[in-house]
Design a protein around this nucleic acid. Structure first.
Lengths: 276, 276
DNA sequence: CGACATGTTGATGCGTCTCAAACGCAGTGG
DNA sequence: CCACTGCGTTTGAGACGCATCAACATGTCG
């Protein structure tokens, strides 16, 4: 007999709807499809910002690319951590599930970011594709060797881990003390900054994930997420561009509603989205 | 006009009651008191588990020890991250504060653990002494040099960061989807495992922090924490040994009430406290 | 002893969850 | 072309867990 606060009404009931065609994250052969145009472009953009010093991305650049459909699982919580992945294109969700089925999404992983780089023996979470995704795989041992061999890479990996830790702390603050409106605003704001494909004046934010994903990320229900976004729309803070993208009409208002702490490591003060 | 869900009734109103005698975390001279017996013993115990390979603790072992009273702040959120600390004795709380005063404790740091090791330019949080504490300080640059020079230390630091990340994820799950009872049980269980000074049969858990600290850590109010613990006491799951320590009467029940996920990295299956 | 901080217990209110129904949209097949 | 279906989303009404407000108990320190 379990809680009343959060039921598992929306809980996953087992292995999700996708078909696990390859023994992902294990030894099995992985699909190596021809690179999609999107993937190639994404990668070109990513590489363009390199400064000349060796980058973490360089050690992935020779690896074959694997593509997976939306909904497929790259690896499961508890699996032996055999690989490190670089996301070339698409978005992943990081999922953890309680023993009675309650689902928590602890983060979303975008193109250019790493998956499974914390280098523990087993994955701490499942990684599921929100969209169609393209990844590069790197064996854990080889990855570790590269890291220990090249100080610059080590530096970068450290930096990423620190970023991840900082993000985790922010999320704890959000889940611990923020109300529904602040959570949703915070999510929209960070997502907008993250993809940063927006024009500064009136940014369009793509939200590839479902409301359920957002809810499980923000510690709310889909109904509350939906209601909150409707309220924000009615107040003119945001506007629905399509089902999976919104326009931020009042970035400053949104930021103040997000109720950020004083020292926000994600703040971009020069950007309009970073204005208080 | 701000939220109703969580007021800042218990919020800190400014620099806390302690007196900041030294410019902690900056360049100022730090207090170097004679080592307390407790501190020496703690350290001896910690060193005893070393295997002969160089340990992270070794590089701290030559540093002078600094002592601070309960309530004092080692460094503040947003301060330049000038130092890395090893906690020799006592307990710290990691504090973040929202712009309207709502307080969040993202973790507690016990003897033998590191503070400020994430190596970002600025501290992401304040570190406040819960009890009287003893620390060893290490300059950030020197620390970083040592790390990059010695592969074993690097390994250990990585491992600690990964542990911290894992703990952060667990906490996100807790804050996101667990009810008051599960939160409190989870906290008691992890604290019991952490200090592990308990006799397995009927472990006594020391809780040096106040109810407010616990509440701000668990995303609850002091009243709810108090009520929950009373309820657990009435059911015979725990018993109050003193105001700041409880006896776990039914470890198995407590563990099941904690509602842990399948793959719990903190589970200690061989220990009675780890039994499902 | 009084002043104060911390912790407990009780009564009430509010924000979000829960349950339920309807809507919009895409895909399918007649 | 349009019913039909399935899924994600929206909207509404009511329930419930925890926050809030308040009073009191306990412990500490002067």
């Amino acid at each position: 007999m379990r809680k009343t606060l959060h039921s598992h009404r929306h809980a996953v009931t087992g292995p999700t709807q996708f078909v696990r065609t390859t023994s992902i994250g294990q030894e099995g052969t992985m699909l190596a499809r021809p690179q999609s145009l999107h993937a190639v472009m994404s990668n070109a953009i990513l590489r363009a910002v390199d400064t000349g010093t060796p980058s973490l991305r360089d050690i992935f650049s020779r690896q074959a690319m694997d593509r997976f459909e939306a909904g497929s699982t790259l690896f499961w919580e508890g699996d032996p951590a055999a690989n490190v992945f670089e996301v070339v294109a698409g978005v992943f969700r990081i999922v953890r599930v309680l023993n009675d089925g309650r689902r928590v999404i602890t983060g979303f992983i975008y193109a250019g970011e790493l998956l499974g780089a914390s280098l523990r023996d087993r994955y701490l979470y499942s990684a599921e594709a929100v969209t169609q995704v393209t990844v590069r795989r790197f064996g854990r041992n080889r990855f570790q060797e590269e890291i220990s061999r090249q100080p610059e890479l080590r530096e970068q990996l450290f930096s990423r881990l620190s970023d991840e830790l900082a993000a985790a702390q922010d999320q704890m603050v959000l889940l611990s003390r923020k109300n529904a409106e602040e959570r949703v605003c915070n999510f929209l704001l960070l997502t907008a900054r993250r993809v940063a494909q927006a024009c500064p004046a009136m940014p369009i934010v793509e939200l590839p994930m479902t409301r359920l994903d957002i809810a499980d990320y923000l510690g709310l229900t889909i109904e509350t997420v939906s209601r909150t976004m409707t309220k924000l729309t009615n107040r003119g803070v945001i506007a629905a561009a399509s089902r999976h993208s919104v326009v931020i009409m009042k970035p400053v208002t949104l930021a103040s509603l997000a109720g950020e702490s004083y020292a926000d490591p994600y703040a971009a003060p020069t950007d309009i989205l970073g204005a208080a």
